[in-house]
Design a protein around this nucleic acid. Sequence first.
DNA 1: TCTGGGGTCCTAGGACCC
DNA 2: TCTGGGGTCCTAGGACCC
Length: 414
Amino acid sequence: MRTIFHVDMDAFFVSVEELFDPSLKGKAVVVGGQRDQRGVVSAASYEARKFGVHSALPLRTAAQRCPHAIFLDGHPERYREYSHKVHDVLTHFSPKVEMASVDEAYMDLTGTERLFGPPLRAAHLLHDQMKRDTGLNCSVGISVSRMVAKVASDQAKPNGILFVQPGLEAAFLAPLDVRRIPGVGKVAEQKLNEIGIRKVGDLARLEENFLFRRFGQWGLALAGKSRGADAGAWFDSDIGEGEDPKSISHEHTFNKDTADSVFIESTLAHLAEKVARRLRDHHFHARTVHLRLRYSDFTTITRSHSLGSATQLDHELIAESRALFRAAWKTGAKVRLIGMGVSGFELSEGQLGLLDADKNERAKKATAAVDKIRDKFGEKSIKLAVGMPGDHAERVHENPVGLPGKQPKPKGSL
DNA sequence: TCTGGGGTCCTAGGACCC
DNA sequence: TCTGGGGTCCTAGGACCC
């Protein structure tokens, strides 16, 4: 039987900001952007949460609910740095550590009793060392399954530890709202509520067959989860596996909606360059290019195209995403967001004709030179000519703040 | 009160092949 | 040629997570 830990940092972005500016402590702090910007809250301090501010809330709404809050753009580099520190602490307790995001990790502590004692003792040691080494608080959920460990850490917030003893998974989950189950979002919750299912216990009492007829495979997995079983490809996998990304993308929401195609296309080219760069950093070649287009009314379309052979070159990604854009865009319609991405990664080269290979060799050398200059002088220092009709591209945040923190949680403890 | 950015996984229809 | 069935790839869309 496994012993799985889910470790979740408390108000991570806000807490890191407080380390650098202790005067923020105890105040209402919102990370994600300025009060008048397009965008949403990435993280809110517990003080701000008292006013109904939470992650994913529009910044402008947050400003209305909590006018005295301090709004910060945030520092993604710092969050990455502290994420590494967190990872270092965790590896003291087990080699099997999987960061699920910057502020969250799964660990397998099976068979570590001789080193750290029983699970609760190990969790306390971890808690203490985390505070000592990073200055940050975390919450820990412990169970035989990943899913239950995750729900447990959620219930333990803030700064708590919760151990669900083997065999008590279903009993632990039963009184919770179905929404607490990872994978049940707004839509699923609504559907379940419509047929009178509110608590996980309601779900566990139903026939699997009924859920299968009603919701298909998803319903079947849900039945398992309601009893505490890990279900689904990801939950089933071993901890510390599958580190490689499956897709890479960038997108940008304009400060003001625009129908200026030159402007949109140069922004798109810039996004493609950033994607290509990351592709090369990973030594990946991508076969499929994706385009994302959001209009003023928020309707969003996606288009994708698979290439004859995989690429990691700026100009190919720029050309391909531009072609997708031109084919998809309702000419004249105002655009709110443009994005592009790649998937279908290959590590090797893929087949190239001899002529192509030669042409590609030269393009690759040029690109490698550009990458070097960027390393030295920064991302903005240079652009390939194809990517720049003038300097029309809107400044894209070099370090967008993603990964919002958590919703306010009921207090939990041992 | 309008709704970011970076991801993962799933579904579903049609093409294409055996 | 009155019409199966399975597997896999491609594309579009959507739910969900942090």
